[in-house]
Simulated scan of single mutants.
Amino acid sequence: MKKLALILIIVGAINWGLIGLFQFDLVATLFGGGSQEGAFARVIYTLVGIAGLVSIAFLFDSNER
């Protein structure tokens, strides 16, 4: 679960970096036909958001490696 959340967070971070630097939304381009309104793109955005919320618990995890 942690690895999946981390992968989704990385995808989100890369996407936000591309939006910030180049105004290019990679997720929308790949999964929504270039629009943030695409159904599958919205699923990806939702999963990234959930992964971010789940990852808040990692801040308080006492099993640090």
Rank of each mutant, 00 (worst) to 15 (best):
Q36C: 05
D25I: 06
I14T: 08
L59R: 08
V27D: 01
A57M: 10
V11Y: 11
W16H: 12
G52N: 09
T29A: 11
G49H: 09
G49L: 03
A39D: 07
G20H: 12
A13E: 10
L47I: 08
T46V: 02
W16P: 00
A5F: 04
I56L: 15
L47M: 14
G34Y: 05
F60I: 13
G33M: 10
F24Y: 15
I10R: 06
Q36F: 03
K2A: 11
I10N: 09
L6N: 09
I9H: 03
L30H: 05
V27T: 06
S62H: 11
V48T: 05
S35K: 14
L21K: 12
F24A: 13
F58G: 00
D25Q: 10
G33T: 10
Y45G: 00
D61S: 12
I19P: 04
T29Y: 11
G49T: 08
A39C: 02
F40Y: 12
F58T: 02
I9D: 05
A28K: 02
I10H: 07
D25A: 07
G33V: 07
Q36V: 11
G49W: 05
F22T: 07
Q36H: 10
G52R: 02
I56K: 11
Q23G: 09
R42K: 15
Q36E: 15
S35T: 13
G32S: 11
S62Y: 08
G52D: 01
Q23N: 15
G17Q: 13
K3C: 02
I44N: 01
I19H: 03
M1C: 05
S55R: 05
S62V: 13
I14W: 06
G49D: 07
A57I: 10
N63L: 10
R65F: 08
A41D: 03
L18H: 09
R42N: 06
I44H: 02
L26I: 14
A28F: 07
A41R: 02
A5P: 00
K3F: 02
I44W: 03
M1L: 08
V27A: 01
V11T: 13
L18I: 03
N15K: 07
I7Y: 13
I14K: 06
G52C: 11
V11A: 15
G52S: 03
F58V: 00
G33F: 09
D25N: 15
F24C: 09
A41W: 01
L4Q: 12
I10E: 13
Q23P: 01
N63D: 10
I44S: 01
L26H: 02
A13S: 14
I7R: 11
I56C: 15
Q36R: 14
A57W: 14
G49R: 07
L53F: 14
